[in-house]
Structures are given as C-alpha cells and as structure tokens.
Design a binder for these strands. Structure first.
Lengths: 241, 241
DNA sequence: TTTTCCTAAGACATCAGACATCTGATATCT
DNA sequence: AGATATCAGATGTCTGATGTCTTAGGAAAA
C-alpha cells in the first residue's frame, strides 16, 4: 500500500478496492460477491457507503445486482482501451507492446491565430508554443503530431527530448489532463504528411483533432494527430439512451 | 405523467426527475440545489436514496458536490450527441435538421460467412438477410449502408420501404438495440462507393463497422456505414482514468 | 409419486436518525 | 486591523431497522 494517506472519499476507495479484487481474480467472472452486509463488514465501511460504490460499479457494467438474489461480477473483458479512454500517443504505442520513439521536426512560439484565441480563450498577446513531431513504434513512423500549448502554461525549462507532453504538463506544470474532446476525420492523402509516414497513396489517415482540458476544465493543449490507419485501430462503445 | 406505474428502482426515478427539473430550468446553471435533507423531503425519498441518485449525477458531470458547501448544477451544455451516443442513421440526419431518405439498392438472404457465424454466433444453416442502401439527406446521398441481420430475428413481413432498421427490430421483432461496438476506419477512395456518394477523389470516407446488441446482450445487427466525411462530423469525449 | 402451494431464509431496496467533518461567515480577542 | 475562535449549515459516514423480491425446500393436495 502506498504511503500517502488516502484523503479521497471513502466510496472511491471502495470502488478501487473492489476493482482490484476483481482484477486479481479474487472474485471471478459471474461469481457472486459476498452479501452487502458481509462485504461492508469486510471492508470496514457502512452498508450505505458500500452501496454508493456498488451503484457506480453497476452503472459502469462491472457488476450486476439482482434484487433478492445477489451481486455478481460481470467480467466481460469489456471493450477495453477504446477511443473513449484518453491516453497519450506514447501510452497507446506502449500498450500495443511496441517501443515508442520520437522524431523531432520543429518547434516555435507564435502569436495565436483567431482559432487559438477562441480555443484557449487567451489574449492576443499570449504566445503559443507549437511543436511538430513524428512518433514511431519500433522505429517505424506511425503518427504525425502537431501540438499547441499556451506558453504561460509550460514550465520554464523543458526539453523536446521528452516523449510525452502529457507528462511534461503533469510533472512540470502540475496540470493533469483529465479529458479531451476529439474530432474524428478521415483523410485520404496528404501531400506533406503521407510521405513522411511512408504511406502508399491508398492508405488513408485518421485525423484526431483534440482539445485537452485539465481538472479545472481549463484548456491546456490542442493537438492534431494523423494516424496511419493500417497501424492503429479505433473503436467506441456507443450506448443508446 | 404517464399512466404506466413506474416499477423501476426509486433512485432511477429520482435521477430522471432531477434531470427533468434541471432541463426545465427549475434549477439553473451553477445554482445551488436545496440541501440533501430538504431535497429528500421534497421528493419523498430517504436521504440515502437521494444520495445514490446524486452520486450518479455527479459521476455523469451533471452536478458537482462540495463537502460542507452544497450541491450545484453543472449545466455545461456538455458535448452532446457525440459518437458515444448511438443513433440510427435516420436519427442522425433528422437531428441535423435535414430530411432523411433512402435509395434501395439490393437485398438478399445468404448463407452466413465464417465471420457472420462468429459475429452472430449462429449455426451454418441459419440464413442472413443482407440489405444495401444509400441514405440521403435532403435528397443528397451521404451514407452508404450495408446491414446484416439473421433471418430468424426479422418479423415475417416487413418492407424495405421502412427507413429505419432500428425501428423494424424494435417494433416488429421486439428487439430494442441498446448498444453497439463501432470500429472506426478512414477510407481514401472506394471505386464502387465513392462515385455512388458523388465524392471527389480527394473527399475521404469514414467507415463505421458496427455490431449492435439488444438488451439481452445478443447480437442482432451488423452494419457497415460509409459516411461522406464532409457531410458528417464525429466527435468523442475521451476521459483519462 | 407427482404436482402445487406455502413459507422461510437470504439478498437487495429503502428508510429514519444520528454523528463526523468540512466550509464559510461571523464574532471575539490581541 | 488582523489573527483566532466559534457557529451554522452542508455533505460524508455510520447504525440499525423495515420492505420487497427471489429462491429453495417442505407440506399438502392430486
């Protein structure tokens, strides 16, 4: 257990604990959990608190509860790592079991465009840091990245050598990116980018234009990523209302 | 209020009621809700039940709660109708304020391919109904659709004139589609489909390959949709864990 | 013996009330 | 005036009890 005392709300700790236990296989698929009464006693929390946690796990489809019967693990290996899950490109490549790399192309600070001003709701005098890179997986180019960050947010000193902007913002600027709104667009051929990614003319690109926000809902990073469609696969779980 | 007695769990009714009230403007943006004690009394439920509802609304970012302070409406008009929300193509076109239409191309019943057998986990003897259509918005072709449904699921009599397969399955077969897993792929040019959709060679297509499931988690419909990228816009809210 | 019906146990759903802790405002002391 | 103490009100958590649903098993009927 980590040293840091867990100041988060109890119900969140219970959620994490239960997810861990399911992950560890302590409760197996379709298996019945202990009754709420027993489970609350085991975890050392009240039944009310436990129930708040269970309610959310139910909403997330991790468990299912049947009135008068019990609570069961629902461990469909559920569509993990779909596009709804936000990860840095670095992490995406790692998760595919490949070694991420970076080819640095250029960086500069520029005056914001009108779009930038809208996006970051910043003043015209604030400068925007722009960086272009090619990301590689096992040495092969797979993503073309354009990243824009308002200069004031960046730490004074940072090197382009860093792989992950997420990490720079997290550790250097203490701004944890928590979510992003992604626009999805197909792109048949781009005369500059396709050759860089070593694409045949018939290999299409998938473009993700993303505005990233931190915990305070402040926009901190805008990025445009061009993915080689044959190297990446995106899927979404779509729910009907 | 509808006649049907609401047999659903209380906390769900509370959620709906609160969402309605926020929608109606009874509680305005950033406004403080009554205290849990008062609100529970107003709604005629216990505080524990109310809190389960509030917890979920909090998780959905509809409200935010601050310990010792209160509960507040968070009515950012939140990125609605992103791709996470499952709608039929018919509905998508309607929601864009345009008139949906259909050009029927072909239909047939065929023996299942190996993929079909895996997808629907059906036997080799079951026939699969396949239909190809072009969907139009205000008369202009915008989506090319291929739909596959196991024949046994379809109602005996149905006409191709129906616009929405969702509706056929819902009303005719009593199978409500509740979610789908969508694969997202870009496509630069398709020699058969691009001309049908009247695409320039440089206009790319976005392909959604979707497996639809009903309430019982049974696969009922597989569809491949080719969207004209310049007529449709897709976005996703991506959350970091 | 077989079928039907009843009942009791166990589980989730909901309730009522209390205490704990946090926050913000006000009052008080220096 | 500024720092500190106090207080009211809100959310967080706990306790114990009752309501309702499901299931299994036994009793009664066929």
């Amino acid at each position: 257990m980590s040293i840091k005392s867990d100041n988060r709300h109890l119900y969140l700790q219970v959620i994490d604990r239960l997810k861990q236990d399911i992950e560890k296989g302590l409760y197996k698929e379709k298996e019945k959990l202990p009754s709420e009464f027993d489970l609350a006693k085991q975890l050392g929390v009240s039944r009310a608190t436990l129930r708040e946690a269970l309610r959310i796990l139910e909403e997330e489809n991790v468990i299912i509860r049947r009135h008068g019967v019990g609570t069961f693990v629902n461990a469909k290996p559920m569509f993990t790592s779909g596009i709804e899950q936000l990860n840095s490109v670095t992490d995406m490549i790692k998760q595919a079991g490949m070694k991420p790399g970076t080819i640095f192309l250029s960086s500069s600070t520029q005056a914001p465009t009108e779009e930038d001003i809208r996006r970051f709701s910043c003043s015209t005098s604030e400068e925007i840091f722009i960086m272009e890179r090619v990301r590689t997986a096992n040495g092969e180019p797979v993503v073309y990245c354009i990243d824009k960050v308002p200069e004031r947010i960046l730490p004074k000193t940072f090197s382009h050598e860093e792989e992950s902007i997420f990490q720079i913002l997290d550790e250097g600027a203490n701004r944890r990116i928590t979510y992003a709104v992604a626009q999805i667009e197909p792109l048949g051929y781009h005369e500059k980018i396709s050759p860089i990614l070593e694409c045949d003319p018939e290999t299409a690109l998938l473009v993700l234009k993303q505005m990233h926000f931190d915990e305070m809902d402040e926009p901190v990073l805008f990025s445009v990523n061009y993915f080689k469609a044959d190297k990446f696969s995106f899927h979404v779980l779509r729910k009907r209302i």
